[in-house]
Design a protein around this nucleic acid. Sequence first.
DNA 1: GCCAACGTTGGC
DNA 2: GCCAACGTTGGC
Length: 151
Amino acid sequence: MAYWLLKSEPDAFSWDDLTEKGKAGEPWTGVRNYTARNHMKAMQKGDLCFFYHSNIGKEIVGICEVIALAHPDETDDTGKWECVDVRAVERMPQPVTLADVKANPKLSEMALVTSFRLSVQPVLADEWAEVCRMGRLAPAKKAPTSAKKKN
DNA sequence: GCCAACGTTGGC
DNA sequence: GCCAACGTTGGC
């Protein structure tokens, strides 16, 4: 079980867009960065990801779950790029803004601060718990029971 | 809209 | 394989 952070400009694809996809989820296409791609290749089914709105909002708005391992990105003609599929799990009761993250000394090493341009980032368990706490999500909660049932 | 950070490209 | 030029991202 690992934790990640996915960034998206809400103009292009927002948390609400992912929520509308329901349990079927959505392929996380369009990543054209090797580091980000390698992170996606390392993802396992059931790994959880923060969903971060860049540019507009600049806040972590929810949690999504990896439901398919890395596979070729159909929006890519070169065959180099891959994507995972994710689905929305839970909205943050209180979105955690970039300013909130930067203001928290416990999160000073978070990739969102140190590698802010990277679109797919690893998140440490401690950081995950802290952001969940700030977002008023129970930190021990891995996933809501409704989302644990497969298929 | 500016600009810093940084990844990628391509000439050598 | 180095590194300068260039393009893109994304916060401010």
